[in-house]
Design a binder for these strands. Structure first.
Length: 266
DNA sequence: ATGCCGGGTCCTACCCGA
């Protein structure tokens, strides 16, 4: 007689904005071998699916699902556990929106969403309005899943520094789309809906950056931002063991400007 | 106030990032 599947003993879920997967294939492969995540969400792969080096990752035991786009954006997930893709675009966006920024999967008893949230600094107020609308749709998606008691993690490049502790002095203008009050209000809406900011749950104070600009010696001056996040539903947050950026990846040759962030769930 | 660097692409100046 088969017993019901017990919850997975432990899961490691990571996110990484790689700033071109073709430039960072080796970095990702080495990181998979070193850190062994169960799921790794990627952002800014900057290519369509046929150009994604899926075979290289398959050789390391990881299957890929790709939501590609030429030149800009593009997200993917690599998994060493079985997963099923359930959405390849954020529900509620206009049908003619072709920007590749969202992937939703079911894996290990969870719903896991990887996002590349619009930056909002390009194309003036129109670009900022696009960011805010995207955040409204994301909050609605989260609220719908929570209303159905779905164990949930939403992770990725949010392009939001939630508080003034989340960016180095001088790293951003107060009018930047990453810190504007309208942006932060929408991030808070996701927290108020019931999501836990995993990094801040374990490190309530002080700088915990995930991004350092290539320019102006930002890494050397530790002029960073905390904009890559993992938000957890309450039942998942109860199982939270660790949530940290891997700063070693900013030291390597030709790094991404973002480092990976990994969450471990008991 | 702008560029700094580093991706991308109609391959070469320009767009985008945060």
């Amino acid at each position: 007689m088969l017993r019901a599947e017990p919850p997975d003993a432990s899961m490691k879920i990571a996110t990484w904005n790689v700033n071109s997967i073709r430039q960072r294939e080796g970095h990702v492969a080495r990181w998979l071998e070193r850190r062994q995540p169960d799921l790794l969400f990627l952002q800014e792969i900057k290519c369509e699916a046929p150009a994604f080096p899926a075979l290289a990752f398959q050789g390391l035991g990881y299957q890929a699902a790709i939501v590609g786009q030429k030149s800009y954006n593009g997200v993917a997930v690599l998994g060493r556990i079985p997963f099923e893709v359930v959405h390849r675009a954020l529900p509620g966006l206009p049908a003619d929106d072709t920007q590749a920024r969202y992937i939703e999967v079911q894996a290990g008893g969870l719903t896991a969403i990887g996002i590349y949230l619009p930056n909002g600094n390009s194309r003036g107020e129109e670009g900022f309005a696009y960011k805010l609308a995207w955040m409204d749709r994301l909050a609605e998606r989260i609220e719908a899943l929570l209303a159905a008691d779905t164990p949930l993690i939403v992770t990725g490049d949010f392009n939001v520094a939630p508080t003034d502790e989340d960016y180095a002095k001088g790293a951003l203008s107060p009018s930047d789309a990453l810190v504007r009050s309208e942006t932060r209000a929408r991030f808070r809406r996701m927290l108020w809906a019931g999501m836990t900011d995993a990094i801040r749950a374990l490190t309530p104070e002080g700088p915990v950056y995930t991004f350092w600009d290539y320019q102006a010696a930002a890494w050397e001056r530790n002029s960073g931002l905390r904009i890559d996040h993992a938000l957890l539903s309450a039942d998942v947050a109860e199982r939270l063991v660790s949530a940290e950026p891997d700063k070693m990846e900013r030291e390597v040759q030709q790094p991404s400007d973002h480092v990976p962030v990994m969450v471990e769930i008991a």
